[in-house]
Amino acid sequence: MKHEIRDEKDAIVVALEGDVDLQSSPDARKVLLDCVGRKRPVLVDLSAVGYIDSSGVASLVESLQIARKSGNTLVLVAVSEGAMRVLQLARLDKVFTICDTVEDGLKQVRR
């Protein structure tokens, strides 16, 4: 799994790429916690995530909880089909704020 963090004006955009599974989710978790630790809105770009498992979803949930505690938001953007299915199975698709594109996400955090 690879990742890329971009500092946008209104949010930190972190793009994960590849499979987020038992092998890579500890890395994904570190990256996500690092982002939400910056106390700014975070957009997680999942467009290039082919597969995400329960441990990856757990890292997202943990990050969301931390972001909310500090009064920030965490938005999932451009969620790939595969990742979306896992979120649906976990019935977390209503828990997360999900936007179709990074632009939509940025608009969302500006509200």
């Binding site: 979803v57 949930v61 976990a90």
Partner: peptide, 14 residues
């Protein structure tokens, strides 16, 4: 229990 959003047990639920 899905109302309790904790990571544990999510895999079994899947």
């Amino acid at each position: 229990d899905l109302d309790d959003i904790k990571p544990g047990g999510l895999g079994t639920h899947f």
